[in-house]
């Protein structure tokens, strides 16, 4: 509706509606985000903040003390992500596929029960699994013993070789409900006519899943992958709750989140260093940004979407 005759009155109510959200969001999220990127270019010399350019990044990637820790955390973080992609998302899809079967009884009970771990805090999950896997309590060895596999037991969280995988699986256990729910929603939105048409052609059961449903839910799987990526690369809580800020044994469960926390906040005798902390945060920001861009431009834009 063009109202060109008189100069339109300035619509103050738009400002009033937008202002609170924009102000809080800008002041508490966007500004600190860029300020953190800026702080990574500074350091403290004689209690004064001095601009040092990319010196902190040179330290992070160039000095062995820092770079070994950084690459270790990054590598661990990748493994953490890989375990989620290989275990959590396939299990989630499988559970959703079973649950979406139209004649299944008790579906809502299963759905609610399987989602329960997702609502628990990392503190509960971390400690609960720590206790269960602990050699002192003996639940895990006892249960393996019951099926005659006691020799397989090891104090997984205490062994460098297993601790990270064990914690990744604990995290998978906790979050499997999210891909399950999202895929379940996607599967429900597939119109019955398509499935019936396929059935007429003789495509049922597994074939119908692989040939009809899976291609149709690929966009949702893409969304889940990027959500998993972002969540994994700023994970912290579970490792901290189960293994402490030192991410033991011997940093074998250290991921970027715990590494940044230690650097920024300090631990034991090392003092916190906000500028190196910002540097690590900037590196995390870059990694997440690259992942999100790869998804948006590389995957999502090429994915075929079907409108029903």
């Amino acid at each position: 509706m063009p109202d060109t005759q008189t100069k339109p009155k300035f619509r103050w109510h738009i400002v009033v509606f937008l202002a609170p959200a924009v102000l809080v969001y800008t002041a508490v999220m966007i500004y600190p985000l860029f300020n953190t990127l800026r702080l990574s270019l500074f350091t403290v010399i004689d209690q004064e903040r001095v601009f040092v350019g990319l010196q902190n990044f040179r330290t992070l990637f160039g000095e062995t003390v820092w770079s070994t820790q950084f690459w270790n955390a990054l590598g661990n973080n990748f493994w953490f992500f890989v375990v989620h992609m290989l275990v959590q998302n396939p299990i989630g899809v499988a559970l959703a596929a079973i649950l979406s079967h139209p004649k299944l009884r008790f579906a809502s009970f299963y759905r609610s029960a399987i989602f329960i771990p997702t609502i628990l805090s990392f503190v509960i999950v971390g400690f609960a699994w720590k206790l269960i896997l602990s050699p002192i309590w003996g639940i895990a060895p006892g249960m393996l013993d019951a099926v005659g596999l006691k020799s397989l037991y090891a104090p997984w969280l205490g062994k460098e070789a297993y601790a990270l995988t064990a914690l990744s699986l604990v995290s998978v256990w906790q979050f499997v409900g999210i891909p399950m729910m999202l895929i379940y929603a996607a599967l429900l939105s597939i119109p019955d006519e398509i499935l019936e048409a396929a059935e007429v052609e003789g495509i049922t059961g597994f074939a119908s899943f692989w040939k009809i449903k899976l291609p149709l839910i690929l966009p949702s799987i893409g969304i889940i992958s990027i959500l998993t990526f972002v969540a994994n690369f700023n994970a912290f809580d579970l490792i901290y709750a189960a293994q402490g800020a030192l991410a033991g044994p011997d940093f074998s469960t250290d991921i970027l989140g715990t590494f940044m926390y230690r650097t920024f906040f300090g631990f034991q005798l090392q003092l916190g260093d906000p500028h190196m902390g910002s540097t690590i945060a900037s590196a995390m920001f870059a990694i997440i940004l690259v992942g999100v861009c790869l998804y948006l431009f590389g995957i999502q834009s090429r994915m075929r979407r079907y409108q029903f």
Binding site: M29, P32, N35, N234, F236, P274, G277, A281, M284, F285
Partner: peptide, 16 residues
């Protein structure tokens, strides 16, 4: 902000 986690800005948030 849907995709970028607020935790990245923690250092500056604490300072503020």
């Amino acid at each position: 902000g849907i995709m970028i986690p607020i935790r990245i800005g923690t250092v500056a948030i604490l300072e503020m």
